[in-house]
């Protein structure tokens, strides 16, 4: 009897497929072990590879690049704790001997099963990653990200004014004063989200971390009726809480053309990575329920 028509092997294959697709619970694992005490290792790996192949195809439909700040965090972890010989020579002494880390690295074992893989003894690099204060690393890298962004946006910086007496000015002038006067101003541009109803949005966001101030400049967005709905700005700050964007204030668009709105962050912003625009009920909301219309990524 072929494996395909053998009920025992069919059931084993079912369990192995389910495990490869989404994992199985303890009861199913016990059943699998009872049916095939040897572990069906070869077939298990085969289905895992099939699942991985399919997942590759799906991921390629909307390929993403590793965000720069995350790449820097990963590299910082490696360089700071298990750096290569070359890297170590070009840096100040690390907290511990990186070359020794490589020498002391446990020998690579041939992994024959999932259990083997998971039970591999932690390397010193692994220990580092396991204990790394993610937020601490993120903070350091985001400082770098801001610096880089500023340097890459020379058009956002003015020459500096020398204003002796600050006159009463409107949002346009206030925005320009921020750009001219704050050394850490970053600029990012709006992009409509794929399903947005405001595909024609243009404009930018300027933000100064040191001053905790910034401005939206928006055009191409339809006027809202304030008694029915208002636009609301959200600020994603992973250092604070990536799951809960910070309310950046509500505002109205009264007419076509360009609108400049001061950012009204309700909390201190430590490391913004994205500004998002939604349409909410009048007065705004605590947790966004409106459609995500546009974003400006740092």
């Amino acid at each position: 009897m072929s494996r395909a028509h053998d009920p025992l092997h069919e059931r084993i294959d079912e369990l192995l497929i389910d495990r490869a697709v989404l994992g199985i619970d303890e009861a199913a694992e016990r059943e699998l072990h009872q049916l095939d005490p040897r572990g069906a290792t070869e077939a298990a790996h085969e289905f895992e590879a099939i699942a991985a192949t399919a997942h590759l195809a799906f991921a390629a439909e909307r390929p993403k690049a590793l965000p720069r700040e995350m790449r820097e965090r990963l590299l910082a972890g490696i360089r700071g704790n298990a750096a290569s010989r070359a890297t170590v020579q070009s840096r100040a002494p690390a907290a511990w001997d990186a070359e020794a880390a490589i020498v002391n690295r446990p020998p690579i074992r041939i992994v024959s099963s999932r259990a083997d893989f998971d039970e591999a003894p932690p390397t010193r690099l692994g220990g580092f990653f396991a204990t790394l204060g993610w937020a601490v690393a993120a903070a350091a890298v985001l400082v770098l990200a801001f610096t880089t962004t500023s340097l890459n946006a020379p058009t956002s910086r003015g020459g500096g004014g020398g204003i002796a007496v600050a006159p009463i000015v409107g949002p346009v002038e206030q925005r320009q004063q921020l750009i001219d006067g704050a050394a850490d101003v970053v600029v990012t541009h709006w992009s409509a989200t794929p399903d947005s109803t405001i595909a024609g949005i243009s404009g930018d966001v300027v933000w100064s971390q040191s001053r905790q101030a910034g401005y939206l400049r928006i055009a191409g967005v339809p006027a809202n009726t304030p008694t029915e709905a208002q636009y609301q700005l959200w600020i994603v700050d992973p250092i604070r809480d990536p799951k809960h964007p910070i309310d950046g204030g509500v505002f109205d668009i009264a007419a076509t053309g360009e609108t400049i709105v001061p950012i009204d962050a309700k909390l201190r912003i430590d490391g913004p990575t994205l500004f998002a625009l939604t349409l909410e009920k009048p007065g705004g909301v605590v947790v966004s329920g409106g459609p995500l219309l546009a974003v400006a990524k740092l």
């Binding site: 195809a57 994603v236 995500l292």
Partner: peptide, 30 residues
Amino acid sequence: SLEAAFDVAAPDAEQAWASSDEVRRAIGLM
């Protein structure tokens, strides 16, 4: 998160990994 929702929806510029032989083979299989 809002950020993840946007990130998921929007592909980045062409990524080298997405045009590798293996990925093309996988797409063909699917």
